[in-house]
Design a protein around this nucleic acid. Sequence first.
DNA 1: CTTGACCCTATAGTAGCTTCATGGTGTTGG
DNA 2: CCAACACCATGAAGCTACTATAGGGTCAAG
Lengths: 137, 137
Amino acid sequence: MSNCLKIGEVARMVTCRIETIRYYEQQGLLPTPGRSEGNYRLYGREHVERLRFIRHCRSLDMTLDNVKLLLKFRDAPEENCGPVDALLDEHIGHVADRIVQLKLLEAQLRDLRGQCLSAKASKDCRILQALSPGKER
Amino acid sequence: MSNCLKIGEVARMVTCRIETIRYYEQQGLLPTPGRSEGNYRLYGREHVERLRFIRHCRSLDMTLDNVKLLLKFRDAPEENCGPVDALLDEHIGHVADRIVQLKLLEAQLRDLRGQCLSAKASKDCRILQALSPGKER
DNA sequence: CTTGACCCTATAGTAGCTTCATGGTGTTGG
DNA sequence: CCAACACCATGAAGCTACTATAGGGTCAAG
């Protein structure tokens, strides 16, 4: 076996924090590694690959639950991958929705910002006024 | 005094949950209201206005810390409102950044999705393959 | 006098980690 | 030989902005 990597080395290889690795183990995304005499976790190549898979998914903003599901399919090569496609479609939908929302938000914020273009007394600040419904007029 | 509204009525007026109102009080965004004989919180018009202000800010995705700051300026009419403008500029920056990020993300996800257009065995799924760096080729 | 709608407090849970407190392991230098 | 230092271990708390839950009190109507 090539289970010889300490957690710090693995963390450096996949550029994530040691605590995050332990957290993934605790959450059941990473199998419990072997231990050294001194009770240090010892990882092998398959752990590193699995971690990279997880981090890649996370960099795509997937939830850990979704990553768990993807790992299940990764672990079952004969299973039909339809749900993987569906998961991705749904995730794309979420991201697209969020973009629309944020664009609307940005427009609102810029509009608000346009109301007070120079510093003045708060009582005259149009931004604060605009944020206070019922105090309009 | 017009301190006569119970928390449920206020919640209905500003369309937020009762628990949220208590939470804001606990977090120091809403002054502690008076109490009835039966120990019920009693709110007046100024509480409702403040709550609407808070909810408006939150609908613009501001953090509670930022809302706290804005409330400070709302409470100090003679203060110069420059920091308000700055806060808003920064917030707009965050939102704009996030939009850029999410657009990149969406493109990546669509690209990934394009790799597996029909359900098949997981071991042949290009999506799972693409998510597994080191297992390429 | 009981039912039901409403209110109270305190505590725990959510997501995905990060930080902290406290202590063991292992290697190197004086 | 031992101290210093880097590294590792565990368990618990902290972060945001709430939401939910447990276990109880208040109040008006029937």
